[in-house]
Write a protein that binds this DNA or RNA. Structure first.
Lengths: 163, 163
DNA sequence: TTGCTCCTCACGTCACGTGAGGTGGC
DNA sequence: TTGCTCCTCACGTCACGTGAGGTGGC
């Protein structure tokens, strides 16, 4: 099912392709914007093409198009950086989108900042819980390994004792 | 798609239901086994009914049946305990199954034990990596929160300064 | 023509959650 | 009849992975 194309301002004038000075990775548009293709984006940020398309499908990125080819602007790169930061600290894509959607370049963004702070406090608590669970798991696993080693020592023939 | 019913030894003689002494939670079978129903199992181990059915579907549990009702034996309870331990330390269900499937009550199980030890060492390494990532994430989130607080302090009117 | 990069479906993965619709015995 | 516990589908979730099949320009 295709997403509702809210706010998608498809450029109606076709972009004059082929006016680029060289076969460079950066494709400067007529407006001077450095446009990045998806392969470059993926390499730069250490993600797969699928990930970038997935984020777009979820409404987190809206790169320009040249025909069917995606072209990412400086803003797209900034957004992706934020998305990956959010993912790194454990936010879901839905949460990341919720916070980013509140951004308003004309306002003070205090609402966005307060939501972000609130979510961050809760997320920090979750991370600390996860850390406790991880330590717990490491302890259990270590104990289990000792028990298994013990069983192995009992069951297997005593090979190469101190000669 | 139904699983291959390998080794499923369905009791061909119908179990005489109604011979239980009371409406107790434990349903002693004619063989003296304490049989537990799924609701009891779930409560005891802190999992959902769905989880128990899911584990069965994946071949990790094979409770008896009384008609369509699942009845868990002492062995099933022991297996579940192991499954949950495995999950806790981060093994996938597939890995848990792989290790449990190697169990042979008639042998020394040294092959099972060695596989378990090998997998455990790798898992321990993964857990330690996760811990490092978690600490990293906590650091990033904390730094981010400080930055957001800074922005909020700059952008919002100074309310209630030291009177 | 080959090679590279891009594209759009669309099903698969993992560990379940969440109804829907129905049964059985007190 | 109501209430409780059990059952079997079967679709949904999350963040992508992984082909399949096709295009476009050097």
């Amino acid at each position: 099912m295709p997403r509702a194309t809210q706010g998608m301002h498809m450029d109606m004038k076709a972009m004059p392709a082929g006016a680029s000075p060289a076969n460079n990775n950066d494709l400067p548009s007529e407006s001077g914007e450095e446009l990045t293709r998806i392969g470059e984006m993926a390499k730069t940020f250490g993600v797969t093409l699928r990930t970038l398309r997935f984020y777009e499908d979820k409404g987190l990125l809206q790169p320009r198009r040249d025909g069917s080819m995606r072209l990412y602007t400086r803003k797209d790169r900034a957004r992706l950086k934020l998305i990956l930061l959010g993912r790194k600290v454990g936010f879901s894509l839905r949460e990341v989108k919720q916070m980013m959607d509140l951004y308003d370049p004309t306002g003070s963004n205090s609402k966005q900042l307060r939501l972000t702070l609130d979510k961050s406090e809760k997320q920090l608590a979750r991370l600390n819980k996860q850390k406790a669970a991880l330590d717990d798991a490491i302890g259990e696993l270590t104990r289990g390994m000792a028990a298994v080693r013990q069983l192995l020592a009992e069951r297997s023939p005593h090979v190469a004792a101190a000669s």
